[in-house]
Simulated scan of single mutants.
Amino acid sequence: MSELALLQDELFGDAANAISDIKFYPGETQEWMIDEIAETIRKGIEDIRNGGGRDIDLSL
C-alpha cells in the first residue's frame, strides 16, 4: 500500500476522525513525490499521538 493510500485511510477511513475535506498545497517546485509528502504527514500524526507536539491556542 502506498504512503498516500495509508494517509487517506488515516484521514478519511475512520468515521470517528470526522474529517470530510482537506487540501494540501505541494508547493511550486514540486521537488518531492506525493508519497514522500504523505509519509511526512503520517509521521507527524504518529508523533502527536505519542505525546509530541504542543497545544495551539485557537481562541480569538
Score class of each variant (00 low, 15 high):
residue 1 M to P: 08
residue 1 M to R: 07
residue 5 A to K: 15
residue 7 L to S: 05
residue 7 L to M: 09
residue 7 L to A: 08
residue 8 Q to V: 03
residue 8 Q to R: 06
residue 10 E to P: 00
residue 10 E to I: 00
residue 11 L to K: 04
residue 11 L to P: 03
residue 12 F to A: 05
residue 12 F to M: 09
residue 13 G to E: 07
residue 15 A to L: 02
residue 15 A to D: 11
residue 16 A to N: 14
residue 16 A to G: 09
residue 17 N to K: 10
residue 17 N to I: 01
residue 18 A to F: 04
residue 18 A to N: 14
residue 18 A to L: 13
residue 19 I to N: 14
residue 20 S to K: 10
residue 20 S to N: 13
residue 21 D to R: 10
residue 21 D to E: 15
residue 22 I to N: 01
residue 23 K to Y: 10
residue 24 F to P: 01
residue 24 F to E: 05
residue 25 Y to S: 07
residue 26 P to Q: 12
residue 26 P to N: 13
residue 28 E to R: 12
residue 29 T to A: 13
residue 29 T to G: 05
residue 29 T to S: 05
residue 32 W to A: 14
residue 32 W to H: 14
residue 32 W to N: 13
residue 32 W to R: 11
residue 32 W to I: 01
residue 33 M to Q: 13
residue 33 M to F: 01
residue 33 M to T: 03
residue 34 I to V: 13
residue 34 I to D: 14
residue 34 I to Y: 09
residue 35 D to A: 01
residue 35 D to Q: 05
residue 36 E to A: 12
residue 38 A to E: 11
residue 38 A to F: 12
residue 39 E to V: 00
residue 41 I to M: 14
residue 42 R to F: 02
residue 42 R to P: 05
residue 44 G to E: 10
residue 44 G to K: 10
residue 46 E to N: 03
residue 46 E to L: 07
residue 47 D to P: 00
residue 47 D to L: 12
residue 50 N to D: 07
residue 51 G to R: 04
residue 51 G to N: 07
residue 52 G to R: 10
residue 53 G to Q: 08
residue 53 G to Y: 02
residue 54 R to P: 01
residue 54 R to I: 12
residue 56 I to V: 15
residue 56 I to P: 05
residue 57 D to F: 03
residue 58 L to I: 07
residue 58 L to Y: 06
residue 58 L to Q: 12
residue 59 S to I: 08
residue 60 L to E: 13
residue 60 L to G: 12
